[in-house]
Amino acid sequence: MFKKKDFLLIMLVLLAALALFLVQYLNTKNTQSLGMVRIWADGKIYTEVPLGKEQDIRILQENGCENVVHIDADGFYMLSANCHNQLCIGQGEVTGENYPLRSLGTHILCLPNRVDVELLVEKAENPDLPDI
């Protein structure tokens, strides 16, 4: 027969398990940074900005390289850059919808200024989408 104490103990363990699960769930949520835009400059993370509020992020490096990324609720694009070829401007917009169809995927790259803007998304629904 169950004793009252046993029942309480089981409930306690279940609660502890639930708490542990919640902590881990929230942690993974954080590390995945869903809907975040990660900006790299010269190989280092420059900043991370969530999608949402419409805003322009200025990336100013010590060597004078300057890029401006426009971010809104759907995605982002390179608004301006002081690089010589302006290819990053021509790479268009990255959104949560269109990235599987872009050859650069979740990235906008400015090679001369060594800037890489990346949309952090959860693993694609379709496992057959290419990695590169």
Binding site: P100, L101, S103, D128, P130, D131, I132
Partner: peptide, 18 residues
Amino acid sequence: GVSVQCPDGVTPIQFGGD
């Protein structure tokens, strides 16, 4: 999965994009 880029002027296939 490794994609092969479509040359300009050639019809892309499958997933769309290029």
